Amino acid sequence: MEDLENITVRSVSVSEMDNNVYLLTGKASGAQVLIDAAADFPAIERLLAEGARDAEVPATLELVITTHSHWDHVRALADTVAATGARTAAGTPDVPDIEVPTVLELNHGDVQAFPDFELEVISLRGHTPGSVALLYRDPHGPAHLFTGDSLFPGGLGNTQKDPERFALLYQDVFERVFDYLPDDTVVHPGHGAGTTLGAERPHLTEWKERGW
């Protein structure tokens, strides 16, 4: 758990694929945003309950954002929506591939505002056409970037050895992340451990040359 000034960030790893589910909770309002309702709804329920304890008022799950349409990131989406009544959001090109209806389509540069915080949408095309990252700018600390499967410690997301998809993902990550955000930005990926942009920046040329 990361205790920031206005929000807390909690996460849980679920399933055999080590999917990360993230929960942002506004302390003053109780507004919650869940990022990637992957497998294991009971674990998500526990995460929501833990997050609710961070708030000064009763918490409400406002939105479930799916970073991309791959099956392992949506296995608990239907159960989460049924239990909470939360709205759903995903990158526009990925919406047709998500079985649970998407209420809010996300595009590059959109800003989703909640009482305690805002999330900026950064489209990172290549892993899927509609992959998005979510940027939270902490007013008193480093920014936090939730990258789905587009950026990990050590490289970019899987583009199935397709050179065009890799080139597009590399371009988006280079221009929309590394050229846009400082080195202390904390990266929260869709699987495994986190990192910072500063730790990954020296390896950009290496990633481009190897093509994955």
Rank of each mutant, 00 (worst) to 15 (best):
L4D: 03
E5A: 14
I7P: 01
S11K: 14
V12M: 12
S13D: 10
V14Y: 12
V14M: 12
N19G: 05
V33D: 02
F41P: 05
I44V: 11
E45I: 02
L48F: 13
R53N: 12
E56W: 06
A59Q: 10
A59P: 08
T60N: 12
I65W: 00
D79S: 15
T80E: 07
A83Y: 08
G85N: 04
G85F: 03
A86C: 14
A86E: 03
R87W: 02
A90T: 09
A90G: 09
V95L: 00
V95H: 00
D97A: 12
V103C: 04
L106D: 04
N107P: 00
G109C: 13
L124F: 00
L124Y: 00
G126Q: 00
G130W: 04
S150H: 05
P153L: 04
G154F: 11
L156N: 01
L156S: 01
G157V: 04
N158M: 04
T159E: 04
P163R: 01
E164N: 03
Y170P: 02
Y170F: 15
Q171G: 12
R176Q: 13
D179I: 00
D179G: 04
P182Y: 04
P182H: 11
V186C: 10
V187C: 01
V187T: 05
H188L: 11
A193L: 13
A193Q: 13
T196V: 03
L197M: 13
A199Q: 14
P202L: 13
T205C: 01
K208E: 01
W212A: 09
W212E: 10
